[in-house]
Design a protein around this nucleic acid. Structure first.
Length: 543
RNA sequence: GCCCCUGUAGCUCAAUAGGAAGAGCAGCUCCCUUCUAAGGAGAAGGUUGGAGGUUCGAAUCCUCCCAGGGGCACCA
């Protein structure tokens, strides 16, 4: 019995027993919640408020039906403050526990995704310099969301879109050349120290090359391989694919075809050799250039091609883009432009996150690659554990602007809940270690039926099972709302219950250690390890 | 000027389609001869920036105001 099952069952009852207008009104506003305060139950709904309003005469009969239909799954269905609260029966919890004993982490997987292909694109920072701490937001959100999507049964591709052409890349090359004294320095060139490094390392290779495009390729590649990928690895982020923007332009026919499509809709205007997409004709406040007067395609055009590639050539059903908030307007226009190509608005899901600013002695600095003002991921990871960083960023909604103070970050780092989570894991692990030292073997398997039957009677682990049972409900909400940060609270709850369990139940006894307990502890440890890996955090065996 | 985001406990932040305001840290009271006290148990801390409105119900939606951030390029 999961939240969606409860929802479905109650909706059926409403449809059977109410007039159509009534249940339609109610379904519009009907909500189901995972109850946070376990004393109040496991699930709740606002149904009674709605019945009062839309079908007061049928309230009693509906309640009666709900009681009758659902009494097998719940030990108590009660009304508190007009909420209807459901307390899961021991039998449901027994089944959950049995399944966890039987299947381990596989228990937490589901089939909601029905193997649909989904692409999650994130980080995608320009290959023009090292990653800075702002990019961590995208990385953590993307990793976590992608992992949840896998658990929900989607076929997931994690992708980094590499903007390896265009003006920014030209500026990178010019900055390098200027550093080598080949061309004069200009205002808009990149100023960071890393330019010196790249210039030094590429100096000989580019000495005899005159083709600027060739140098662009080398420079992008250098940045990607020497700065971006190593930083991501340190952070614990990995991608299935790095997609080159430049590769979009290999097939000229495709470009023609897409421009043709827009022309047919009378959305293309030519001006001084440039091509403009007239989005103002379909309700936008601003047009976008597709091709510049110098013949170079714009980023906007690339993005159209890129999404065309995602949905039509690679046949993804859903694309999730995780972007900095400065792309907000761009993405709205992009969606408009893509609708013309028959890519539905609902296929593109966007998470935008606000900027990270640097705070130093009460002064706020805006990060800028051009000015060389930024903290790189490597800088940060040299003083703070990557797991701490991940937990820190997971805990925040993407919507808030973050003022990042390195000193506070270091302080927070020591006090971070990361250690609380790891400590829970380490404690469980330690029990197993102690038992092994005493000559006990940790059981690989145990009869799940017997085990679950035994533990369901033990009050001190009941809340732990209830929390574990919430996982599947939560994973659906995280997908539906695109809010990986909801997982943060959940992780802390799990750890809390584990610490509680640790205090309450002594496993290593003087005379004899119960092998059932060892299997339980092993199972819990593995589940927590699995939970941590969803955030790409490696559990620590000791702390 | 137009558009988007934010303002919640002393501090850092949560709060699933509007639904019963929560954590961590700091401070307070208890608990280490017993599997790691980086822990546990408990109390305290709030007019959710302000003023109106909609609703049975608003941190959440609408209007106005105050404060901060972002966007409005033939950049990405």
């Amino acid at each position: 019995m999961q939240l969606i099952d409860l929802e479905r069952k109650i909706k059926i009852i409403l449809r059977k027993n109410l007039k159509k207008t009534s249940w339609k009104n109610i379904e519009n506003k009907l909500q189901f919640f995972i109850v946070k305060n376990l004393d109040r139950g496991d699930y709740s709904t606002n149904l009674l408020f709605l019945l009062d309003k839309f079908a007061p005469n049928e309230k009693e009969i509906i309640l009666e039906k709900i009681n009758k239909k659902l009494k097998n799954h719940f030990k108590k269905i009660e009304i508190v403050n007009n909420y209807l609260n459901f307390h899961l029966s021991d039998y449901v919890l027994f089944k959950v526990l049995r399944n966890i004993f039987k299947k381990g982490e596989k228990h937490f997987y589901s089939y909601i995704g029905r193997k649909r292909k989904i692409i999650v694109e994130y980080v995608s920072a320009n290959p023009t310099g090292p990653l800075h701490i702002g990019n961590i937001r995208g990385a953590v959100l993307g990793d976590t969301l992608a992992n949840f999507l896998k658990i929900l049964g989607f076929r997931v591709t994690k992708e980094y879109y590499v903007n390896d052409r265009g003006t920014q890349v030209e500026i990178l090359v010019k900055s390098i050349l200027a550093n080598l004294g080949k061309i004069p320095e200009e205002e808009n060139f990149y100023k960071g120290d890393y330019i010196k490094e790249i210039a030094r390392d590429l100096k000989e290779k580019i000495e005899n090359i005159n083709d600027l495009k060739k140098i662009e390729e080398m420079a992008c590649n250098y940045v990607l391989e020497n700065y971006i990928k190593p930083s991501l690895k340190k952070l614990g982020t990995s991608f299935d694919n790095y997609f080159s923007e430049k590769s979009l332009y290999q097939d000229k026919n495709k470009l023609e075809k897409i421009i043709e499509l827009y022309k047919k809709m009378f959305l293309i205007e030519e001006k001084d050799g440039a091509l403009i997409l007239k989005l103002t004709k379909i309700g936008e406040i601003k047009d976008e250039f597709l091709i510049r007067a110098n013949g170079e395609p714009t980023y906007f055009f690339s993005d159209i091609l890129y999404h065309y590639n995602k949905f039509f050539e690679r046949k993804f059903k859903i694309g999730v883009n995780i972007l900095g908030a400065d792309h907000h307007d761009h993405i709205r226009r992009l969606k408009k432009a893509l609708e013309v190509l028959k890519i539905k608005e609902s296929q593109i899901k966007i998470i935008t996150y606000q900027h990270v600013h640097l705070k130093k002695e009460e002064k706020i600095l805006k990060m800028s690659k051009r000015k060389g003002v930024f903290v790189t991921i490597d800088d940060l990871l040299s003083v703070i554990n990557p797991g701490v960083v991940r937990i820190m960023f997971l805990s925040m909604t993407p919507e808030t602007t973050l003022n990042f103070d390195m000193e506070i970050a270091q302080k927070v780092s020591e006090e971070n809940p990361f250690w609380y989570l790891q400590y829970a894991y380490a404690r469980l692990n330690n029990i197993l270690k102690r038992a092994e030292e005493r000559g006990y073997k940790i059981p690989e398997k145990f009869d799940p039926q017997k085990l679950a039957k035994f533990y369901i009677k033990e009050e001190e682990i009941k809340n732990l099972i209830r929390i574990l049972h919430q996982f599947k409900d939560l994973s659906i909400i995280i997908y539906r709302e695109l809010k990986p940060n909801l997982y943060y609270d959940y992780l802390l709850n799990v750890a809390k219950e584990i610490h509680h369990f640790y205090e309450k139940r002594r496993i290593i006894q003087e005379e004899k250690i119960d092998r059932r307990d060892l299997f339980l502890v092993k199972t819990l440890r593995d589940v927590l390890g699995f939970f941590l890996k969803i955030v790409n955090i490696e559990p620590m065996e000791k702390i």
